[in-house]
């Protein structure tokens, strides 16, 4: 369902992450709320990596240098994949930027979030924590 390269060109497949809880985020350098979401996603990865959470961020910039400039200002400690064509966003039905999907250990999409507000991060945290509890 999702197979994209990282900055080194190494392919990542979502299917390989079966058994993990995945927080999949679609972002672009020009998107304002994405800037706010990056520190939070770093924290998320840091806090829950040991519980089996993987944060995956798919960049949809058409220019790779825009994404690089963004990541220089807002570093990411999680995997960033690149899709300049936007084909993955289309396949996943992305309605706004950023859009994120919470995928359980069986590979099923549990919830979808449109946009990012720091005020709603706590709610997301709780949702993720609950999903990490379930096998």
């Amino acid at each position: 369902m999702l197979r994209l390269p990282d900055v080194q060109g190494r392919q990542h497949d979502l299917a390989d992450l079966r058994g993990k809880v995945v927080y999949l985020d679609f972002w672009a350098s020009w998107c304002g709320p994405c800037r706010q979401s990056f520190p939070w996603m770093n924290q998320l990865q840091q806090r829950h990596a040991k519980d089996g959470l993987v944060v995956l961020a798919v960049n949809l910039d058409t220019e790779a240098k825009d994404a690089a400039a963004f990541l220089a200002r807002y570093p990411a400690s999680f995997s960033v994949l690149y899709d300049a064509t936007g084909a993955s966003a289309k396949a996943w039905g992305v309605k706004a930027m950023p859009s994120s999907y919470l995928i359980d250990r069986q590979g099923a999409i549990r919830s979808r979030h449109i946009g990012f507000r720091p005020s709603s991060a706590a709610e997301l945290d709780a949702q993720i924590a609950a999903l990490l509890q379930t096998p």
């Binding site: 679609f26 020009w30 910039d61 058409t62 936007g86 966003a89 992305v94 930027m97």
Partner: peptide, 11 residues
């Protein structure tokens, strides 16, 4: 214009 294609419009 798809949501992820608004890079130029955001300039």
């Amino acid at each position: 214009v798809q949501p992820w294609e608004k890079g130029h419009l955001a300039k």
